[in-house]
Amino acid sequence: MIIVRKAERKDCKRLLELIKELAVYEKAPDEVTVALEHFEESGFGEKPVWWAFVAEEINDTDKNKNILGFALYYIRYSTWKGQRMYLEDLVVTEAARGKGIGKLLFHALIAEAKEKNFSGIAWQVLNWNEPAINFYKKYNTIFDPEWINCSIPV
């Protein structure tokens, strides 16, 4: 059985494992540099800056629990649209893909965005990630070819 619930501090170690798995998939295994303590504090400290849902498999026979995926977001402010949910990562471990877990997580995000009166949900997807692009197309996603992503290290 799969349940979706809000992430808790105790989940952070597993979430970081999944983030590293995603980095390998995205051909950037050395790019994950965040420390577990910083990750935990950023999500569960006095002033959290991110929130997440986890998809957890519960084995009825021995009550084992295993997080198979997560969706992590933060609040972004648009001067044109107001508060928006920014989906930083939606990750399902490779062995569990194709079982509807991403859909469960995405629906939890949509419900959360509606509940919090956000004006929408925004995210990025790599242009070569066809499985993800095809998943998002099911939701009438608007793919924006105009904007170029920018960042600077500080």
Rank of each mutant, 00 (worst) to 15 (best):
A71I: 02
G69W: 00
W51M: 01
T61P: 12
F70A: 01
W51H: 05
G43N: 02
G43Q: 01
G43I: 03
D60T: 15
I67S: 05
F70G: 04
Y74F: 10
A55N: 14
L72M: 04
T61E: 06
S42P: 13
Y74L: 10
E56C: 07
G43R: 04
Y73A: 01
A52M: 10
Y73D: 00
Y74P: 13
L68T: 09
D60V: 14
P48H: 02
T61V: 08
K63A: 07
I58W: 09
A52L: 08
E46C: 11
P48M: 04
V54G: 04
D60E: 15
P48N: 07
K47A: 04
F53W: 05
V54L: 04
V54Y: 06
D62W: 11
E57W: 03
K65N: 06
G69L: 00
F70P: 08
A71S: 08
D60Y: 11
N59L: 11
E46G: 13
D60K: 15
G69P: 11
K47C: 05
Y74D: 12
E46L: 13
G43D: 00
G45R: 02
E56F: 02
K65M: 07
G45M: 02
S42R: 07
D62S: 14
K63C: 10
W51Y: 03
Y73E: 00
D62M: 12
I67V: 10
K65L: 00
D62N: 15
D60W: 11
E56K: 08
Y74Q: 12
F70K: 03
K47S: 05
S42E: 03
A55D: 14
E46Y: 06
K63Y: 09
K65G: 07
E56W: 05
I58P: 15
A55H: 14
W50C: 07
F70L: 01
I67A: 05
N66P: 10
E57Q: 10
F53M: 05
E46I: 07
K47G: 01
A55Y: 13
N64P: 11
F53C: 09
P48G: 11
D62Q: 12
A71K: 06
F44S: 10
A52N: 09
W50M: 03
A52G: 13
K63L: 13
W51K: 06
K47W: 00
W51D: 00
T61L: 10
S42W: 03
G69Q: 05
E56I: 07
F44R: 13
S42M: 07
F70Y: 08
V49D: 12
L72G: 05
V54R: 03
F70V: 01
D60C: 12
K65C: 07
F53E: 05
Y74H: 12
T61G: 09
E56R: 07
D60M: 14
G43T: 02
I67Y: 09
T61I: 11
D60F: 11
P48Y: 00
G45T: 04
